[in-house]
Deep mutational scan, measured.
Amino acid sequence: TFEVERIVRKKIVHGNTSYLVKWKNYSSKDNTWETEDDIRTKYGDLVDDFEK
């Protein structure tokens, strides 16, 4: 199971928000862009903290 360590960046393309996710126990080269809906479902607190 993958676990988010932190959110690195945010991008908005054509009105759709995605977050660059750093995965726990993986290197930064393994970071992936994930949709806001996918990340918010399980890691809403991390998204809220990133947006502060």
Rank of each mutant, 00 (worst) to 15 (best):
L46W: 07
V13D: 09
N31D: 09
T1Y: 13
F50W: 11
E3R: 04
E36R: 05
K10E: 00
E5V: 04
I7E: 00
G15D: 05
D45A: 12
D49Q: 12
E51S: 02
D38R: 11
K22W: 04
D49M: 12
E3H: 05
S27V: 07
R6F: 14
V21M: 02
K10T: 04
D30V: 09
V47R: 04
E34V: 15
E36Q: 06
T41A: 14
D37C: 11
G44T: 08
T32S: 10
H14L: 11
N16K: 15
G44P: 15
E5F: 02
R9F: 07
R6Q: 13
D49K: 13
Y19P: 00
E3N: 04
E51M: 05
K11D: 04
V4K: 01
N16H: 12
Y43G: 04
E36G: 08
E34G: 02
D48Q: 07
T17Q: 03
L46F: 07
E3S: 05
K29A: 13
E34T: 05
D48A: 11
T41E: 13
R6A: 13
E36W: 06
N16E: 14
D45K: 13
H14T: 07
I12R: 07
K11P: 00
K11N: 04
R6S: 12
F2N: 12
E3I: 10
D37K: 14
W23K: 02
K24E: 04
E51I: 06
K11C: 15
N16S: 11
N31P: 08
G15K: 04
K24I: 06
K11Q: 08
K52Q: 11
K11G: 05
I39W: 00
E3F: 05
N25H: 11
N16A: 12
E5H: 03
S18M: 15
T17M: 05
K24L: 11
D38V: 12
G15T: 03
R9H: 08
E3A: 05
D48F: 07
V21S: 00
I12S: 08
W33E: 00
E3C: 10
H14F: 10
H14V: 08
T41D: 12
H14A: 13
R9W: 09
L20A: 00
N25Q: 05
S27T: 11
S18D: 02
S18A: 08
R9D: 14
I39N: 02
T41H: 11
V8R: 01
E36P: 03
E51Q: 05
S27H: 10
K10F: 04
V21H: 01
R9V: 06
K24V: 08
T35L: 12
N31Q: 08
D38G: 05
E5D: 07
D49Y: 11
F50H: 02
I12G: 04
R40G: 04
K52P: 04
G44K: 14
L46E: 04
D38S: 13
N31C: 15
R6L: 09
N25W: 08
E5L: 06
K10I: 06
V21A: 01
I7P: 00
L20W: 08
G44W: 12
W23P: 00
R6G: 07
K29H: 10
D45F: 13
I12Y: 07
